[in-house]
Write a protein that binds this DNA or RNA. Structure first.
Length: 568
RNA sequence: CGGGGUGUAGCGCAGCUUGGUAGCGCGCAGCGUUCGGGACGCUGAGGUCCCGGGUUCGAGUCCCGGCACCCCGACCA
């Protein structure tokens, strides 16, 4: 490929709205271009990377016996209505009607469609287990796309679906996918770790996310410093100290706190620590049911955990009328004599008294004791934080940011039950198809590779996904000898199966070297008057400071060796 | 969806306070010089100043309304 005719130019400066290092380099190196918020066009260099990422995933899916298919982008409403997701996904999907008035949406994902085909194709246990996958566009009307290709409104996902007879079979398929994911990410140059994740409120007992640790990540991952415990913060737990036996705690006593309504203000005015207080939150779930949650004053509510406890899709703060109904006063709410369903976080220590709201204006209570003065359902709905103790080994945990590059879910019979997808078992009974689904976003993977593989000069592509194997730089002189020699070199390399980007432009050496560093192809081959004099070619790895002169006659085997030895 | 910010040439920005007919750097085109780490000189092209309305003799600048994009948070199989 001649760089003089490459579609897409490199930029010396990144557009001002590109924030992360990877996004700036993605734009500067002509990997992709924005079309609208969260919509990107792949340019030739980036598209070559995306196809290589796809191919790695394809090979690893094929290796575990998954079969590639293709389901349309435009999907009819009827199947989504069977599972109730036509309504549930309304706020985050793109929809349209055909001229006959039939409703469709751009696939947000494809579980329903796979299940529709599976129930038509799979009649007998003899056809199981089976696995299918496809690469297909997903449309998601994200309210906040961000960081270039990391979160977009349209993106290609590899989604795989496993179908088997029972939980045991599903478990095997699940771990086969887990292995395929680990190999896929490793091959494309991503250091991804698998962490336990929230399964959402859609059922299923196990889910893992593959996370790449980087500052630009949206997720927070809890790590144990001593053992292998790691979990997404939306699911993480911690070891609790056993509650001390409550001694002789005097009865609750009111304390006047006029106008003091926040935890912070209370700690100042009473001269106590936030952890000495109880925080009571009055919340509403998606159905409008009101619930009060009690936490120590120094702990934050973890909404995903609470949603799971409440089996709801949404929690928000309660309205004024809810406070009245609960016989509470905003700013002075406490668990005592509250007229509401009461959830008590497990962080609340039953062995010690707290200061809590008195449910009376301008008053709090001292000596409030769990078990004596109030009772509720004990639940784990608090955020784990840095320094907490590991639930597995008691070690200290830390928090890091991560990008979720892939996820795997065990659904079990959930979709089959909703969509009446059954097979005839050995014993003649009808049983539900056991289902699992497994996703990897291609664009997000590419963006994550860029975020984690660069230096001050530009991108540093892992060989396996680099847009080209080598970048040939011709430093053209006054006559045509350098060009002729470089032309011949490129022809030979291409004939040998080497992917070459050939900088044949009439630019200065500085411009060409800077662009080569920016684009980040693994090996740079320079042809110039200087190298011709030695009948050699200079070969330099992207991260090396200096190149080496390789005799012209040895260059093909040398390059074959280089791209072979670094190829996994 | 809540909060914050930004829209002026392909990119980065100034001009707006105090209204007078748009500028700088890079990039781009032509010519010449240069030629191994973003060269130099000369000449030149390139603008619905986000959109609509208003005030005014006159609006990039002031007022009103809208739109787009970015960031933080919320949400997110």
């Amino acid at each position: 490929m001649k760089q003089s005719s490459l579609f897409g130019r490199t930029l010396r400066e990144a557009p001002a709205d590109a924030q992360t290092p990877g996004t700036q380099l993605m734009l500067r190196a002509a990997i992709a271009r924005p079309l609208a918020a969260g919509l990107y066009t792949w340019l030739p260099l980036g598209f070559r990377v995306a196809r290589k990422v796809e191919q790695i995933i394809r090979e690893e899916q094929d290796r575990i016996g998954a079969q590639e298919i293709r389901i349309p982008v435009i999907t009819p409403a009827e199947y989504w209505k069977e599972t109730g997701r036509w309504d549930a996904l309304e706020p985050v999907t793109f929809r349209t009607k055909d001229h006959g008035g039939h409703e469709y949406m751009i696939g947000y994902t494809h579980e329903e469609l796979v299940m529709k085909h599976a129930r038509d194709e799979i009649l007998s246990y003899r056809q199981l287990p089976t696995m299918v996958y496809h690469f297909q566009e997903k449309g998601r009307d994200e309210q906040r796309p961000r960081a270039g290709l990391l979160r977009t409104r349209e993106f290609v996902m590899k989604d795989a679906y496993s179908i088997d007879k029972d939980w045991e079979g599903l478990d095997k398929q699940y771990w086969a996918q887990h292995g395929a994911y680990a190999r896929s990410f490793e091959r494309m140059g991503l250091t991804a770790i698998s962490v336990e994740s929230d399964t959402g409120n859609m059922g299923g007992d196990v889910a893992h996310e593959f996370q790449v640790l980087t500052e630009v990540g949206e997720d927070r991952i809890i790590f144990c410093s001593q053992c292998d415990y790691r979990a997404n913060m939306e699911k993480a737990t911690r070891a609790l100290s056993p509650a001390a036996a409550a001694g002789n705690v005097p009865a609750p006593a009111p304390v006047s706190t006029p106008g003091v309504t926040t935890i912070e203000a209370l700690t100042k005015s009473l001269g106590i620590a936030a952890g000495d207080l109880l925080k009571t939150l009055l919340l509403r779930d998606a159905s409008g049911a009101v619930v009060a949650v009690v936490l120590p004053g120094d702990r934050e509510l973890n909404e995903p955990k609470l949603r799971k406890v409440l089996k709801t899709s949404e929690v928000k703060f309660a309205a004024d009328a809810d406070f009245t109904a609960a016989r509470a006063v905003a700013g002075f709410i406490g668990p005592n004599n509250l007229n509401a369903r009461l959830l008590v976080d497990v962080s609340v220590d039953g062995g010690r008294p707290y200061v809590a709201g008195a449910n009376t204006k301008d008053a709090h209570l001292r000596n409030v004791l769990l078990g004596r003065d109030f009772n509720g359902e004990m639940v784990d709905v608090h955020d784990v934080r840095e320094g907490d103790r590991c639930p597995k080994c008691g070690g200290t945990v830390t928090i890091k940011r991560g990008v979720e590059v892939g996820n795997i879910f065990k659904f079990g019979p959930y979709y089959a039950d909703k969509m009446n997808a059954t097979y005839e078992a050995e014993d003649g009974t009808r049983k539900p198809l056991m289902f699992g689904s497994y996703g990897i976003g291609i664009g997000r993977a590419v963006q994550t590779i860029m975020e984690t593989n660069h230096d001050a000069k530009g991108l540093v592509w892992p060989l396996a996904v680099a847009p080209f194997h080598v970048h040939v730089i011709a430093l053209l002189g006054k006559d045509d000898t350098v060009r002729a020699s470089a032309d011949a070199l490129v022809a030979e390399l291409e004939a040998a199966g080497v992917e070459v980007l050939y900088d044949d432009r009439d630019e200065s050496a500085g411009v060409k070297f800077a662009d080569a560093d920016l684009i980040g192809i693994p090996f740079r081959l320079t042809v110039s008057a200087r190298t011709l004099k030695e009948n050699a070619v200079e070969v330099k790895g992207r991260t090396e400071d200096k190149g080496v002169m390789v005799p012209r006659g040895w260059i093909i085997p040398k390059i074959r060796d280089l791209i072979g030895e670094r190829r996994r």
